[in-house]
Amino acid sequence: MASWDDVRRIALGLPETSERPSYEGVAAWRVKDKAFVWERPLRGKELEAFGPAAPEGPILGVRVADLGVKEALLADDPGLFFTTPHFDGYPAVLLRLDRIGVAELTELVVEAWYARAPKRLAAAYGTETTGPEG
């Protein structure tokens, strides 16, 4: 299963990515100052709302392309992906980091990076990783 070291390695391997604490003091990874993945512990009201069913362990926030992708992920694997009212109407999901493999995590982090990277940077990276044939 994946760890914070995996998140860090994958995120920082993407062009123009930096790591710095979010306003809450937890780790966040950004491309051109736009967060695309971040550590997201549950807050008091969220823990109360979940009650005994509150997810335990490390939680990663992941930006997604749009609300359709968010809904698809939530429906596809509710044991891995979840959300809270804080993220209603926002294209992001939360995931239980200790329940995801490194390959799937890599795919999600790269997709999150593409969702936030400037178009020119994303296009240049896509050409670099796939070659001129795309």
Rank of each mutant, 00 (worst) to 15 (best):
98 D>L: 03
102 V>I: 14
102 V>Q: 14
75 A>R: 15
95 L>W: 12
78 P>Y: 01
88 D>G: 05
115 A>F: 08
107 E>H: 12
70 K>Q: 15
97 L>F: 02
113 W>V: 09
70 K>I: 05
95 L>M: 15
99 R>A: 13
105 L>N: 12
102 V>Y: 05
103 A>N: 13
103 A>C: 00
92 A>V: 15
94 L>W: 08
90 Y>A: 04
105 L>Y: 12
101 G>W: 01
114 Y>S: 01
107 E>D: 13
88 D>K: 11
97 L>V: 07
77 D>A: 15
109 V>R: 02
80 L>F: 05
117 A>H: 06
104 E>W: 09
104 E>C: 00
107 E>Y: 00
69 V>F: 02
93 V>E: 02
87 F>A: 04
86 H>M: 11
105 L>V: 08
71 E>G: 00
84 T>G: 10
106 T>L: 00
116 R>S: 13
85 P>E: 03
112 A>V: 03
71 E>S: 06
92 A>Q: 10
90 Y>F: 15
69 V>Y: 02
70 K>D: 06
83 T>R: 06
78 P>E: 03
89 G>Q: 04
105 L>E: 06
90 Y>Q: 11
73 L>R: 09
82 F>I: 07
104 E>D: 13
70 K>T: 02
118 P>C: 08
72 A>L: 10
94 L>P: 01
93 V>A: 08
